[in-house]
Amino acid sequence: MACSGQDVEIEELPSRGTLWTWTVQQFMPKNPYKSDETPETFIPYGVGYLELPGGVRVEGRLTENDPQKLQIGMEMDVVFEPYRTEENGDEVINFFFRPVR
């Protein structure tokens, strides 16, 4: 946005797009990273930008973390999955990008 307008509307984005770029986070980030993992249980995770046609590119975590299976331009779906558990037991859901099979 470059117009400094405040009159915004909610628009639904398509749930399928193409991977614009990606990386794999190979080490566990420090705070503010918040997951149920410890340095011992940390599993590297993919991160990428999904290009949603007619919309925007959105940054998100990938369900895939194998660099051999990730390719710029591949199709991916937006999915919602459990990410971590709060101290009170509530499940925190996050969005992920999953390769189309």
Binding site: Q25, P32, Y33, K34, S35, E59, G60, R61
Partner: peptide, 11 residues
């Protein structure tokens, strides 16, 4: 954004 592990300049 930080909780999900994306607040990383290296990424």
């Amino acid at each position: 954004y930080g909780e999900a592990g994306m607040m990383m300049t290296t990424q």
